[in-house]
Amino acid sequence: MTTTDSGVDTLADVTSSEDRLRRFLLGLPGVDQVGAEARAATLSTRSIKTTAKAYALDLAIQMIDLTTLEGQDTPGKVRALCAKAKRPDPADATAPQVAAVCVYPDLVATAKYELKGTGINVASVATAFPSGRSSLAIKIQDTKDAVASGADEVDMVIDRGAFLSGRYGLVFDEILAIREAAGDAHLKVILETGELVTYDNVRRASWLAMLAGADFIKTSTGKVSPAATLPVTLVMLEAVRDYHEATGLHIGVKPAGGIRTAKDAIKYLVTVNETAGPDWLDPELFRFGASSLLNDLLMQRTKLATGHYPGPDYFTLD
């Protein structure tokens, strides 16, 4: 993609007024839908074997935001999840730790306590997750709450209603406000691509979030179907790559929801490498929002190590 004449100077300009922002976002080149899907399909046929596969499996484990976002979550469930985050495979100490544990704000303190000194981050969803339908004051308070409880990363949702009706300035200002409320915490902006309808909108929302100061752009809440898909992630990775070309900044990408098998995860890693580049093959810049994915990665890992197929009975339920 050619991002028109968007050098560093122009990019600073585009956020100076809602009008300019809208003109910039609507001026982004359209996404070739068929091309993006075909490209993603081609990339997912790559065959990753033996040592490359072992590397990919371990990398994917290190990129997981081990997630539990259910109404029925309890401190006990979060403690169990943290134990799994620290030592994913009790039978194999060489299995790496995951990147972070992702929970609702009221369970952040529990997770933080369990993960003290492990290097594993605690991520919290905020801003009236998953719908985002609440006043800005409440969203800000929600974010401050999470950070005060010790969240290292905040996953916010954008106001899709405002975005789809073209009120980009409102969405932009909201991300800015949350960015400020989150302080030093890493800010992941959830676009909820399943509700954005078109790839063009995904590209616009990606740029909007990055311009507003997101550290990460994330596909989905996991509560809406379709959640993460490979073509959507591809479009977001292109946006991140182009933003890097324009500004020199590295923004992370996090597909979340619907990634359940090691095979899927490896497809994503291939796409990352081929789209944004090897810089992004790093837990600092690419994450999976997942829970059941971890067990499948561990089973594949065990298969490589022992030479026979393991069964789900030998791994913890999440």
């Binding site: 030479g307 026979h308 197929y309 393991p310 069964g311 789900p312 009975d313 030998y314």
Partner: peptide
């Protein structure tokens, strides 16, 4: 052999 050693069989 793959079925015989499969832990989920």
């Amino acid at each position: 052999p793959w079925l015989a050693s499969h832990l989920d069989v």
